[in-house]
Design a binder for these strands. Structure first.
Lengths: 191, 191
DNA sequence: ATTCACCTTCCTAACGGTCGTTAGGTGAAA
DNA sequence: TTTCACCTAACGACCGTTAGGAAGGTGAAT
């Protein structure tokens, strides 16, 4: 199916060059077809971008949930600590994370509303899932914090604060930030 | 002087639309001149961008240092805590912070090296200044942390983690992140 | 004091190129 | 025979950039 190949090539280009920087020409080349052939599968650049976006968001959500489920036997502390390494891998290995962050931070001007309508529920869902996880772990003694909701917001904040170094293309600076901020965070939420 | 007006208009456009998204047409309109007149003052779009960049970086560095000097009589805790509010103001009031963050996260493809040659010393200088501040405060009991360098990296991380919400245009979410992450950070660095 | 050359600043016009997009046709599959 | 994926050709719009010239000011030479 070639509309799938277009979708993946577009994801790669949008992730690398951004919406304005990416061109249908380049996407078509990567697939091995001519530019106007894209219009047999998508209504235009905006339509293609929105299809990529829904694919990416559902994929990333699934992968994050899978990470926490797959390691459910490990103690919460190491699960959260290792999340930084997992995120690094995720960002460097696939276009999903790069696309999501770039389009989330700086969406194409004309699609601001439509991007945010997907991004906000995504982030809020992530935050709620993390809050529930912390609440569950409080019962079994995996963590001792007085406000799991605030702790989950803080966790997303420190993770994203480290991720911005990945955005600039410095995995070593990312790891240095992760190493510095993790002990502070863990000590900070455990009263 | 009209090359100054071009510089400021360019800063505003680059901050709002990014390098690829901004056009000399729009910049010229904002100044009130025709597009080719820009070439009487700058060699081209890249040259103009680099001039804006050096202006912005020196301005922002100066303003951050001024913030910490002006409030030097206040306890460190409130100086760092209030930095979040100061940053919010700074981001919303002027184009400087918006330009810096956008160009730092996603610099124009052809200028990656030149942007990073300015950005990296800027961030490292900031980190070193913060480390020295923490070291000084440790002597007077303003803070009790065992590793001021790690604490300063962690502070920049949590600040940037909150700032990414400003990038998306949500000051309320920024404040919620700041409110959640600050107590965690402060408790976390004070052993 | 006048002339002249020169420089800056802005203009109009136009360049070549790339962008997203559309029209219209071809060939194979259903 | 209709439908679908793909093509070539070309559209209009916009991009950054250049050429060439019209004003105005400056400073030195006549």
């Amino acid at each position: 199916m070639s509309s799938q190949k277009i979708l993946l090539a577009a994801r790669s280009c949008f992730a690398r060059d951004g919406y304005e920087g990416a061109s249908l020409q380049k996407i078509a080349e990567e697939v091995g077809i001519k530019k106007p052939s894209i219009y047999a599968h998508y209504k235009g650049k905006e339509d293609l971008f929105l299809h990529v976006m829904t694919l990416v968001f559902s994929t990333v959500k699934r992968r994050i949930i899978d990470y926490f489920i797959q390691n459910h036997q490990a103690p919460l502390e190491s699960r959260m600590k290792n999340f930084f390494d997992w995120m690094l891998q995720e960002y460097e290995m696939s276009d999903n994370a790069r696309f999501l962050i770039r389009s989330g931070y700086y969406p194409p001007a004309g699609l601001y509303g439509q991007v945010m309508d997907i991004l906000i529920p995504f982030l809020d869902g992530l935050r709620r899932a993390l809050t529930r996880l912390l609440q569950r772990e409080m019962l079994t003694g995996g963590v001792h914090c007085k406000d799991p909701k605030e702790a989950s917001i803080a966790f997303l904040t420190v993770v994203e604060g480290a991720v911005v170094e990945l955005v600039c293309g410095w995995p070593d600076r990312y790891q240095s930030r992760a190493a510095a901020v993790w002990p502070v965070y863990w000590k900070g939420i455990n009263a």
